[in-house]
Design a protein around this nucleic acid. Structure first.
Lengths: 365, 365
DNA sequence: TTGAAAGCGGTACCAA
DNA sequence: TTGGTACCGCTTTCAA
């Protein structure tokens, strides 16, 4: 009984406990257990160490190693909203890139007000993350300044700043909105309105710019714009209300993202405005399951998973080979035509499927 | 020039650098900066230390602290699929519970085959996580044995084991399926089929059990069961195909989760089988945006966010007050009636398709 | 109230 | 090839 009491816990295995059991020095054990160093050790010693380590259930303490080396092999990811499938898909991409590279992912939800951003970055940096991925950036973001000042390798994803201070991976927002407008114009629409996303983030700004430019080059007026203050369904609904109040003869709406489009759809349904019969609608993002809504939403596909993966790859590059200049990667987007857009009652232009890039010609889902 | 070379980098602030600047000992600095110890220090010293720390931009090194204390204030969360909104919502709940408690969340995606589970746990444990939340558990899961053997506080969420070896937070799956069947029976359906989830996970098993029990107590036969081998749309579609091949007169399908229901819906649409006109359909989970599909899915609402939050709370409890027995928390579910279920067209007991050879019944369109 | 010192468990460099 | 040792930055006990 007392014997058991004397050894109540086996004590976690460390290099020292293995060294003690084998009568060698712990630095020898360390080398035998390190693939890079193993070759300088007698095979027999390596074998004995390996076996003893196995027997004791030894696992290298990454914390201790991090303290010494100054590298944590930890990446912090900050998203504005974990529950938004767009961001969890990006996260999935990040995870895919990190997997097998022995990096782990610390995830933080900045929350809607984004107010706690600084605290969160602080917590992550305090954990000595080797790098940071921000999916929350505003066009001129103090948080980015903060990270840059800390000299933590930082990559922005999905949303970029106006100036390229930090490496960024984004979608081609400007062109994407251009595709949507070209599509609607080809269907014969001329009185097209835009529900813009928040002006403070790049996606809101660039997609609105894309709307204006595309309208102008199609010879149409780009005045029917209402900007939402957040990417939320409710904001989309109230923007739609404003649009129909100001310009009742609108025949198509290009929304700044899928959520805004969903809100517009709700408003239209409530008001008995048929979609696409009376008003065509397009979204942006092609978020998961958006193909299932009624009517299936015509939208711009953004490669969220790939964006996350690319951002992580870029970050690991910056971590492992520091000192390179910021880099911008703009991923291509495609138009996905579904059922929420159709020709105007007056009919599409006769050449409606000519002269368009092939990615506009996707079959309807 | 040489002067600059001599001080190339300002060097990160540590307790020592602050102590040096102030001419005090670093343990004094440590105490001044620690809210628990501050009271034993002269207010003037506290003030000077605080200011100097601020000036140098000091941030406590959690890694070093962890090494010393053996507590990382890190929680590992393993999910089967980050891109699945059900799990990202659970994650959101976990995050909410951790926020402000100075715990951070290490997220790992186990991937579909779940094969790398052991590796992932290994990596997380190597990082000295204080506890683990598993959303991946099978009914008898070697990974859980592994965690338990490691004596790492572990909480299962969403899916539990058959025996209560680890604390678990789940939804009331059995009762949920009972609600769905009661709803369909009330609408007059009698020939109800079930698309079961994987037998190896508790949700699949319990919901199927719930189906059988509810059918029996409604005086109906519980033989129309096809089990899918994964919770995927494609699996739902092929299960639906089997159902209509074996039992063409089926008037309602209760699916094991929303994704399976979606798959069934796709199959039915493809085959021209009207929903809910010809066949009613129910899902399970009420995942985000599932209310937008056409037809809006009648389903069982599972409080995913709350489950995540409860699991995190339970885990923190176990971490901070160890040694308590495993606990099971079963959260209530509710029926959400939408448009994918409706009363049978021709009354409860009639079978307008009876007597026809099944090969004629298949192409309903 | 403050100082001194011993670690936590690795890593990495120098010596033998 | 192996041993010895000095840290990494913080916590914590013991003295002063």
């Amino acid at each position: 009984m007392t014997l058991m009491d004397e050894k109540p816990r086996p004590k976690a295995a460390t290099l020292q406990t293995i060294a003690d059991a084998l009568g060698v020095h712990r630095s020898t054990v360390a080398r035998a257990l390190n693939a890079e160093e193993r070759h300088r050790i007698t095979p027999d010693v390596v074998k004995r160490v390996t076996e003893e380590a196995e027997r004791q259930g030894y696992r290298r303490d990454i914390i201790a190693a991090s303290l010494r080396t100054g590298k944590s092999r930890l990446v912090g990811v900050i998203v504005p909203d974990l529950a938004n499938p767009v961001f969890s898909t990006i996260l999935d991409g990040v995870s895919a890139a990190l997997t097998g590279r022995s990096y782990s992912m610390l995830v933080a939800d900045a929350g809607v007000p984004l107010g706690k951003q600084a605290e969160i970055v602080d917590a992550l940096v305090g954990r000595r993350v080797d790098g940071l991925i921000l999916a929350t950036a505003m066009r001129n973001d103090p948080t980015v300044s903060f990270c840059l000042g800390l000299k933590v390798p930082t990559v922005l994803v999905n949303r970029a700043e106006d100036t390229l201070r930090a490496s960024s991976v984004v979608a081609d927002d400007h062109r994407g909105m251009g595709l949507a407008i070209a599509h609607l114009a080809e269907l014969g629409h001329r009185r097209i309105a835009h529900i813009g996303g928040p002006e403070a983030v790049s996606t809101g700004c660039l997609r609105r710019q894309g709307f204006q430019d595309a309208m102008v080059s199609a010879g149409l007026g780009a005045t029917r714009i209402v900007s939402a203050d957040s990417y939320a369904r409710s904001a989309g609904a109230s923007a739609a209300r404003q649009i129909f109040a100001c310009w009742p003869d609108t025949t198509a709406i290009a929304a700044g993202n899928d959520l805004l489009a969903l809100g517009a759809l709700e408003y239209m349904r409530e008001r008995g405005i048929g979609c696409p019969g009376e008003v065509s609608l397009t979204g942006f993002n092609d978020m998961p399951f958006i193909d299932l809504v009624d009517p299936a939403l015509t939208t711009i596909r953004v490669p969220q998973h790939e964006m996350g993966k690319a951002a992580a790859d870029m970050l690991l590059g910056a971590i492992e080979g520091p000192g390179r200049p910021p880099e911008l990667q703009r991923l291509p987007v495609t138009l996905v035509v579904r059922s929420s857009s159709c020709a105007t009652a007056s009919g599409p232009r006769e050449d409606r499927r000519e002269g368009l890039p092939s990615d506009l010609l996707l079959p309807r889902a």
